[in-house]
Design a protein around this nucleic acid. Structure first.
Ligand SMILES: [Mn+2]
Ligand SMILES: [Mn+2]
Ligand SMILES: [Zn+2]
Ligand SMILES: [Zn+2]
Lengths: 136, 136
DNA sequence: TTGCAAATGCAACACTGTTGCAAATATTGG
DNA sequence: CCAATATTTGCAACAGTGTTGCATTTGCAA
């Protein structure tokens, strides 16, 4: 397993204390974390810098961003995977977690004449096992 | 098709001008509307009342509430939702139009143990025929 | 018609996220 | 190691979304 600074260097972004600490927190978390969660966990971090650090981690592919059921963004480390195109994802509407499924993406549907297809995305959502256990 | 006040009465809530107008707007909409959309469409409605009207429609089962990708709540009439549940939609990224396709929704994928499926949505987007003609 | 619970309007507030800008700093190359 | 520079940070101010409290109005049923 690589150290957090190495992950940042490999992703091509500057290694700063903020990024190291936030990425480490995301890697250690069992659930996707909101900005507020991270702010509580890193009390001396600046609010705005925290938003920008999270955005930079998402932009360089080290983190994933999703919206939870209350409309708040939650972030999780995408750690190793670079290949998320070959399968469908499941989004937990409770915790905001994103999980890789084994299902292949659906085939592009037939479009009316003249329409140009950009992309097909499948949004599979519901409750993950951990959240389902908490709310039976 | 029933008139909007009848729908409200049948749902067991008081018939007020705000509820009639908001429910009518939701029923007429081709896509789920945000609070901001409705505020623009009903300029003399109070902001807070609009939130409360929407919540009351959701509470009595006449409307559905979902979070969009930007973290904003969007509302749709339950009847409308059922009507468009049997087929996939195409979203034009140029003009923002939404078109009904003939393709059936994809079958629910196999989930890991303990996961609970909420819904499967397919986002098919690109350029519609009219916009494609304008930008070859 | 009247009484009352429910709905409304308004002001104030909390939370989430963004932007502009000056100061600090991580990296690069000498 | 040092200096140059492109990023990143910290701070203040702001915008958008949604909520709460409370006095007033109103739908509806008795
Ligand atoms: Mn994946
Ligand atoms: Mn449709
Ligand atoms: Zn979950
Ligand atoms: Zn179009």
């Amino acid at each position: 397993m690589s150290a957090t600074p190495d992950l940042l260097r490999a992703a091509g972004v500057k290694v700063t204390p903020g990024r190291v600490r936030v990425l480490a927190a995301l890697l250690a978390a069992a659930q996707p974390l909101s900005h507020a969660d991270l702010e509580a966990q890193l009390p001396d971090a600046d609010r705005v810098t925290l938003y920008r650090v999270l955005d930079s981690l998402v932009a360089c592919g080290l983190a994933l961003k999703a919206v939870d059921a209350r409309g708040v963004f939650r972030f999780s480390a995408s750690a190793t995977q670079r290949e998320h195109g070959g399968h469908v994802h499941f989004r937990c509407t409770d915790c905001g977690g994103v999980f890789c499924l084994k299902t292949s993406p659906p085939p592009p549907p037939k479009l009316p004449r003249g329409f140009r297809l950009g992309a097909v995305e499948m949004d599979v959502h519901g409750t993950c096992a951990q959240c389902a256990r908490r709310t039976p």
